[in-house]
């Protein structure tokens, strides 16, 4: 069961991940990022960065289909994690049954569009969010998943 779909430029890191793992009782993390999946060094850094009770796998977008489908249909609390909203647009084409939500966490695009203190989006990700929202995906900003302040995409979209 996919409990949370999140976009965080730094993927698995520090306290953010601790909060999310405990708030959503996460047991499995599926990371989808082509660059990380294709770099053995980065891959081992991110897969070791999780508590022993948890499993983390890193896939390319193309290679993630089976793992995501399995996670949609099983009982394991799963976090689907990617660097940016663009990736979710691609994933939804491959696996339409992904829950229609996107939590946007830290995004630090240079010369991007600042939509929250921690989230400056690449113009292509702004477009991706528009596409996602138009397709019924609940897009919202929250630095640490669920706790604390949430900003709805719908409330910032009107100002773009």
């Amino acid at each position: 069961m996919i409990k949370l779909v999140r976009s965080d430029e730094r993927l698995i890191h520090g306290q953010c991940m601790q909060f999310i793992v405990s708030d959503y009782s996460i047991k499995h993390i599926i990371v989808v990022d082509d660059a990380t999946a294709n770099n053995a060094l980065l891959k081992s850094i991110f897969t070791q960065a999780v508590p022993k009770t948890l499993k983390a796998d890193v896939y390319t977008a193309e290679g993630a289909k089976d793992a995501i489908e399995a996670a949609v249909n099983n009982d394991v609390s799963t976090l689907l994690l990617m660097k940016n909203p663009r990736t979710l647009v691609k994933l939804l084409e491959l696996v339409p049954s992904i829950p229609k939500m996107l939590n946007i966490g830290p995004q630090m695009a240079r010369n991007g569009v600042k939509l929250a203190d921690y989230a400056t989006l690449h113009p292509e990700d702004v477009e991706a969010c528009k596409t996602l929202a138009a397709n019924g995906v609940h897009v919202y900003f929250n630095a640490i998943g669920g706790q604390g302040a949430t900003i709805e995409w719908s409330s910032v979209a009107s100002k773009l």
């Binding site: 730094r10 698995i12 890191h13 520090g14 306290q15 991940m17 060094l41 980065l42 850094i45 991110f46 960065a49 999780v50």
Partner: peptide
């Protein structure tokens, strides 16, 4: 400063 945070991950890369 913190285990598994970005500066830590970057140090891991540096000492790989």
């Amino acid at each position: 400063d913190m285990l598994n945070a970005t500066p830590f991950n970057a140090c891991l890369l540096a000492i790989a």
